[in-house]
Amino acid sequence: MRYLIRKFGFYLVALWAALTVNFCIPRLMPGDPVEIMMSKLGQKGPVTPETRQSIEALLGADSSRPLPRQYGDYLAGLATGDLGVSVTFFPASVIDIIGRTLPWTIGLIGLATVISFLAGVGLGTLAGWRRGSWLDNLIPVTTMFQSVPYFWLALILLFLLGSVWPLFPLNGGYDVYTVTPGWNGEFLGSVLYYGALPALTIIVSSAGGWMLGMRNMMVSTLSEDYMLTAEAKGLRPGRIMRRYAARNAVLPSISGFAISLGFVVAGSIVTEAVFSYPGIGSALLQAVGGNDYALMQGIFLIITLAVLGANLLVDLLYSVIDPRIRARS
């Protein structure tokens, strides 16, 4: 129980830190984001005083309100879910844009990451179990994929499978001409088809890392005393591998999974850019390109919250599969 309280406490502090970073960045940076946004918004349509107020609360007004007051306004605005209005997608609000793009990203990045983790851990288990086998000797090759930048691999795959042998579409999230979004088979099929190449990119470039980590932990675990016990007990090798070796070796991989989520998100923003995928990463880049500071800050906040949430989830999962954590209270 104390473990859980500690964890929740930590994530609260981290959440506060993320909100504060989000508050500070626009105020510390050179330039006047509010004015830039106001003039851009003015070109698109009339700006109401409420809109101006909420943007000022987010990005910092040069009307000389003391910082603590500004901080209070900012938090109050966030509490009501007001993240301002987007310039790029005027008159849509930032929350709307996020709501529209986030499912795409979670579907693509989330699924691809989980698949890559499972595949990497599975292969790593086998490689560590049969040290010196061909699979084990393949590991340096697979980790080379890790040092290939996501977006470059994506470019090469696009070049080969999109242009040279046109098996997959070049960009987008689904076929916008022939398919209507909704819960119908055609649309889902199209989504899968369009998502295959981006997902493949993410899997190929990240599975190697999981595989290496798991392999190394397996090797360390194999020399533990309880492995010898399991062997002396005459258990079947498959059972020893799963319940004794892999069950222990996977623990660091899981905590490593939490840590590297941030990197995964980063890599996928760039991947989305290559494939013009209609996810949150592309929206962030559009926002950056169009000086749409409100949308930018909003997306940054959401990405951070998502990573924090995913970390918390992994921590909870960890406490379920490692009995020692539960008892350390």
């Binding site: 533990e224 309880y226 010898l228 399991a230 002396a232 004794y244 069950r247 222990n248 623990l251």
Partner: peptide, 12 residues
């Protein structure tokens, strides 16, 4: 075995 500490699997 020696060292009962480590001869039991800690996670099951």
């Amino acid at each position: 075995f020696q060292g009962a500490m480590n001869s039991l699997n800690p996670v099951i």
